[in-house]
């Protein structure tokens, strides 16, 4: 593995040491070691089946590793965006407020904070609309608002813009960057090379359950070191 840029220190927000994850006889992650520091914006790149989604789900506590150690912020300080946002059968405001009410916040306060967050996401006018009646882009912005309102230390996104139109992609990216400016660390899986360039400060390139390259975004795209990364970038270019 070639690792040049990322700053490694003891105050890492996320730390994986030789993490393995298996499903039956299939090894999905093969000894992944990684440190992610506060404030970083890390893109997980790699072909389908590389282990990006599994890595995100492990960090978020949705699944547990078979071997190795993993340290990450408590789930309550994390937020996860999925490709297809799971929205409740309620209106937009209630979807956002739900994240706060489930943590014991009083209804009035939760709704007030939710409205502020919806305003940041440009969804104020849709607050009373049924969430599932929104467009794909609006739904993902709503999922982002629901994540944002909890002020997460760590934002995880699993191909969150994969099924969106370009304009919606840029809006969601802008909001993700805004969230990072407010102090969230971002780890996201994507197949969109442009998105990785626009959002990421660091690239973790994975192949067959291993981290192949872990470098700054500029360095990775200018000088990919491994044949897998070169092939991946070339295929993406096509």
């Amino acid at each position: 593995m070639r690792s040049t840029a990322p700053v490694q220190n003891n105050s890492a927000l996320v730390e994986l040491v030789r993490v393995r994850y298996r499903v039956g006889d299939t090894e999905i992650l093969r000894g992944v070691s990684l440190q992610i520091n506060p404030g970083e914006r890390v893109a997980l790149l790699g072909a389908n089946g590389a282990g990006k989604t599994t890595l995100l789900r492990l960090i978020n506590g949705l699944i547990s590793s078979n071997e190795g150690t993993l340290a990450s912020p408590p789930v309550a300080l994390q937020a996860m965006l999925f490709q297809k946002p799971p929205l409740l059968r309620r209106n937009v405001l209630d979807n956002v407020a739900f994240a706060l009410k489930s943590r014991g916040m009083a209804e009035t306060e939760a709704e007030q904070l939710s409205m502020q967050t919806l305003s940041r996401c440009g969804l104020t006018g849709l607050s009373q609309r049924y969430a599932r009646a929104l467009s794909g882009g609006e739904q993902q912005k709503l999922a982002l608002a629901r994540a944002w309102v909890t002020r997460p230390t760590l934002l995880l996104a699993d191909e969150a813009t994969a099924s969106l139109a370009p304009a919606a992609v840029h809006e969601v990216e802008r909001l993700m960057l805004d969230m990072c400016e407010q102090g969230s660390t971002l780890i996201f899986a994507t197949h969109n090379r442009g998105q990785a360039k626009r959002l990421a400060t660091r690239i973790v390139f994975m192949s067959a359950g291993r981290v192949i390259e872990d470098r700054t975004a500029d360095d990775f795209f200018a000088n990919p070191a491994s044949q897998e990364a070169i092939d991946y970038i070339n295929v993406e270019r096509v």
Binding site: L62, F82, P86, L88, R89, F98
Partner: peptide, 22 residues
């Protein structure tokens, strides 16, 4: 909803209440 509930760190009781409501 299981991923959403897990990522929001809902307790089993909260998950159940939400499922019944939904």
């Amino acid at each position: 909803y299981q991923d959403l509930f897990a990522s929001l760190a809902l307790s089993r009781w909260q998950s159940l209440q939400t499922l019944l409501f939904e």
